[in-house]
């Protein structure tokens, strides 16, 4: 098995385990509490509205917005890490069909691995620093690496077919 295939298969399995461990940890320790907070803040906002305490209602609504922002990203990280891991393992199996030299194939595999790790990492870091530049850059660079490497793989398959 070539170094590129090893990188993809091992990297993919490791990433899948990380994604699942994160999901298990999230489901046990965070998700229920987050959902309670999410529903609670929205209900509180409308209860305050019924009591005609509008400033308090809008504070509760802002808290709902912030919790929803975190919740969407926390769920996204779990699904994207596992999804990207599966993609890496599949590509690892079929990577010899990519019509490039060994060195280029290794670089494409490395780009896919790095992108698959840092794209969801950037997304989860956004929950620590809402709107933080570093986290957003990490997510954008990561997703860019995944797309570029995937495009290269598609071209590689086409070259092999030809």
């Amino acid at each position: 098995m070539s170094a590129a295939r090893k990188l993809l298969v091992f990297g993919g399995i490791s990433l899948a385990v990380c994604g699942m461990l994160y999901g298990l940890h999230y489901a046990i320790f965070i998700e229920h509490q987050t959902l309670d907070r999410l529903g609670g803040s929205l209900a509180t906002a409308f209860v305050h509205g019924a009591e005609r305490k509008l400033p308090d209602a809008h504070v509760a609504l802002a808290a709902y917005g912030a919790t929803k922002y975190d919740y969407a990203r926390q769920v996204d990280v779990h699904s994207h890490w596992i999804g990207l891991a599966m993609l890496m393992i599949v590509m690892g199996v079929v990577f010899d069909s990519v019509g490039f030299g060994d060195r280029t194939r290794y670089l494409i595999a490395l780009a896919l691995l790095v992108g698959s790790v840092i794209f969801p990492l950037g997304v989860i870091l956004q929950t620590e620093t809402h709107g933080g530049a570093f986290a957003s850059v990490l997510a954008v660079v990561g997703s860019g690496l995944v797309i570029a490497s995937l495009a290269a793989i598609a071209i590689g398959f086409a070259r092999q077919t030809n």
């Binding site: 906002a45 409308f46 509008l54 209602a57 609504l61 969407a72």
Partner: peptide
């Protein structure tokens, strides 16, 4: 979408109140 959701909920609240 995230900004619009909070905005719509705020408008809903104000209109109901």
């Amino acid at each position: 979408h995230e900004a619009r959701e909070t905005k719509i909920l705020g408008a809903m609240l104000d209109a109901a109140a």
